[in-house]
Design a protein around this nucleic acid. Structure first.
Lengths: 215, 215
DNA sequence: ATATATTAATCAATCGTTTGATTAAATTTG
DNA sequence: CAAATTTAATCAAACGATTGATTAATATAT
């Protein structure tokens, strides 16, 4: 009967992640979270100290196994800059689709004015991603592989923005695309490959020099 | 001394728009809103019935003078499809930058699961925009002006997404771009022209056929 | 038996909303 | 026009409900 060896603490984090993503931090009460998780309300404070502590723990769990993922791509010596961009997009979309509840929470926290430890943590997390991606783009310019008048910051914003529009505003994207973009089956079979392919084509058209592009 | 002829009701809406955009709907208390607006708390319910009614009134004010703006571009007979896209981007970015507080509120409401009249209103508002833009893109494909393998829905998501990433996640964009993207001066002088120019170049590279592109 | 985990009950604070009274403005009446 | 009456606007105070958090007691496990 030991169906799960996952800690109860982890179970709470899973549920909290989903509830936060659906109602937002302020909209999700501790009673709702504990109720959905099937645990006593006091357990939240027992494990995480406070509601904000719960949100903080939620972030720490995800960010712990994240850095090395992207880091490796940029430092690879045997790849062209375009290959790096392509790999980066692939890895980024992969990560987004593998835990989209967490992505929604991040997205919501970015949209409101917050201060404190958590806000700094989120900022750091995003900015490391930004810097790493931008480095690849600058390298591509120096190598002459990319056009030299590209707006690197905007390119970064494009990848993040398209992802946010599709994954985070799921109600709209479902109507736009004609199927439930929240359904896990659709996400893997239809949405994920479509977004990945589109982003690659889009960036290829914008980034590459005419010479490379015509090949 | 008649500095403002704006109704007090309108003043409350202005303040509420800002406070909602900063704290989110659930995070903004009626006490905070009424306090910032310098009016008694009961005035909110007197004018708008409820907190949700306030949010609703806020949306109705903005959507009333919105439809005709975009509508005219798509139906213009004397413009090429690319000109239409270009004009659309210009008009869209213009609108976004002219009332970015409202845009933030919309953005936040899209990110949480809500039901009821307001949710439907927001969905309608966005989808009308989506449909109108998509129509232009399809027309461009039929005319042979655009590539025939472009992903029209993703193109729409790109324009919306880039805007959201820059305007709504202002904390990140400020760090990325190196200046305060909330400062009205910067918005008009730097941010707005930069986003507009970038989106045009990006879409031009992706949409146009090689023939048109090489001109 | 000691430490850890879990519970029901309760806390003060804050939430959105309502109330009843008061003032200002507009309308009706004489 | 002036007095009387109605309507609209505004306020301080309080409402019940819900919030996040804490307690003290109990159960479980080592």
């Amino acid at each position: 009967m030991e169906k799960e060896k996952t800690d109860k603490r982890d179970h709470i984090l899973d549920v909290a992640e989903r509830v936060f993503s659906e109602h937002g931090f302020d909209g999700a009460s501790t009673r709702l979270i504990s109720g959905e998780a099937g645990v006593n309300m006091a357990m939240l404070n027992y494990y995480f100290g406070s509601k904000e502590g719960l949100l903080l723990s939620l972030f720490e769990r995800r960010t712990s196994t994240f850095h090395s993922l992207i880091q490796g791509i940029g430092n690879n010596e045997n790849m062209s800059s375009w290959q790096k961009v392509s790999e980066y997009v692939e890895a980024y979309i992969n990560r987004v689709f593998s835990n989209n509840c967490f992505q929604k929470v991040v997205h919501q926290e970015l949209a409101v004015r917050r201060t404190g430890e958590l806000a700094d943590k989120i900022t750091d997390m995003i900015m490391q991603n930004v810097i790493e991606f931008r480095k690849i783009l600058h390298e591509g310019i120096e190598r002459g592989e990319f056009k030299n008048d590209i707006d690197t910051e905007m390119v970064v914003a494009t990848v993040f923005g398209v992802k946010a529009q599709i994954v985070n505003a799921s109600h709209i994207s479902s109507l736009m695309l004609g199927y439930d973009t929240q359904d896990p089956q659709n996400m893997v079979d239809k949405l994920k490959p479509r977004v990945t392919e589109y982003l690659k084509k889009l960036l290829k058209a914008y980034l590459l020099t005419e010479h490379d592009n015509a090949k």
